[in-house]
């Protein structure tokens, strides 16, 4: 049973207080998108063994959605950050690289706003 710290209220919340929301940083495709784009958005998920960005809601707490960067194999939590964040923050990236020096983000973490979907996030 995981504990994740809600970045809004600062509470280290037990998994029973949280609602999972699947992979984070998906780009929504709506009307006008191709079948392939929409299918990827709706169904394709990375499901990695290792570093994963995911959505959680502090459902039995402040009610806010937030993101967690987590290792699905070791269960290490690299950090949590607010849902209103286009990409994992530089602090999160640094925390991941501290553990996995070889790990490289497949998005432009220095960009303040997303210009396009992070590569791989919507494949």
């Amino acid at each position: 049973m995981l504990t994740l710290t809600c970045p809004y209220c600062g509470i280290a919340a037990e998994e029973t207080e949280l609602q999972p929301g699947g992979e984070a940083h998906l780009k929504r495709f709506g009307p006008g998108s191709s079948d392939a784009e929409f299918e990827a958005y709706l169904f394709a998920r990375r499901n990695p063994k290792g570093v994963h960005f995911e959505r959680w809601r502090h459902a039995y707490g402040c009610g806010k959605w937030f993101m967690a960067a987590r290792d699905t194999a070791t269960l290490q939590v690299y950090g949590t950050y607010k849902a209103q964040t286009p990409f994992p923050t530089p602090e999160i990236v640094a925390a991941i690289q501290h553990r996995h020096p070889q790990w490289r983000p497949d998005f432009d973490a220095t960009s303040p706003t997303p210009t396009s979907a992070p590569e791989g996030l919507t494949q």
Binding site: Q19, G21, R28, R55, R57, K64, W65, A83, Q84
Partner: peptide, 13 residues
């Protein structure tokens, strides 16, 4: 209510 909040907080914040 959760459905609304999901879209408000995570998509059209």
């Amino acid at each position: 209510h959760g459905h609304f909040e999901d879209w408000l907080q995570c998509e059209w914040w």
